[in-house]
Amino acid sequence: MHPQNQNIMTQEQDIKNAIEAMRKGGVILYPTDTVWGIGCDATNAEAVKRVYEIKQRDDSKALICLVDSDARLQRYVRNVPDVAWQLIDCVDKPTTLILDGAVNLAPNLIAEDGSIGIRITKEAFSHELCFRFQKAIVSTSANISGEPAAQNYRDIDPRILEQVDYVCWTRRQEHQPHQPSSIIKLSADGQVVIIRK
Rank of each mutant, 00 (worst) to 15 (best):
E53Q: 15
H127T: 01
A62Q: 13
S141Y: 06
A42M: 04
N143M: 11
D58S: 15
E123R: 12
N79C: 06
C65Q: 00
K24H: 13
E112S: 14
E12W: 01
V103P: 01
I38E: 02
V67K: 10
V80I: 14
A62Y: 09
P107A: 13
S126Q: 01
T96Y: 11
L66H: 14
A142H: 06
V91F: 14
Q86D: 14
L109C: 09
L66Y: 09
C65D: 08
E112I: 01
D14R: 06
Q11C: 01
A106L: 07
D68H: 15
L105S: 11
R50S: 02
D89F: 00
G25W: 03
I19Y: 03
K24C: 07
S69P: 13
R23S: 10
G101H: 04
G37C: 10
A62E: 11
D100H: 06
I98P: 05
K16I: 03
A102W: 12
V138E: 03
A21L: 02
A136H: 02
E53K: 15
Q13R: 09
I54T: 12
F125S: 06
A21W: 05
Q56R: 15
C40S: 08
A124T: 12
Q134V: 02
T140S: 15
E112M: 03
W36E: 04
R119A: 09
L29H: 02
A62L: 11
T10C: 06
A102S: 07
A111W: 08
D41H: 04
G39A: 04
L97F: 14
L87W: 08
I38L: 15
A136K: 03
G39C: 03
E12A: 12
Q13L: 14
G26V: 00
C40N: 04
A18K: 01
V51G: 03
S126V: 13
V35H: 10
I88Y: 02
I118F: 13
A142F: 02
P31T: 05
A142I: 11
V77C: 04
W36M: 02
T34M: 11
G25Q: 04
N108P: 05
L73N: 07
N17D: 12
L105R: 11
Q11L: 01
Y30D: 01
N7A: 10
M22N: 06
W36C: 05
W85T: 04
D70T: 09
K61L: 13
E46L: 08
A102L: 05
Y30K: 03
L109K: 09
Y76D: 07
D58H: 13
G37I: 06
D113V: 09
Y52M: 05
T140P: 07
N5P: 00
D82C: 02
T10W: 07
E128F: 00
T32G: 01
D33R: 07
M22I: 13
V83P: 03
D92P: 00
G101P: 11
P31Y: 03
P107D: 15
K16S: 13
I54P: 08
K55I: 08
K93I: 13
A106K: 10
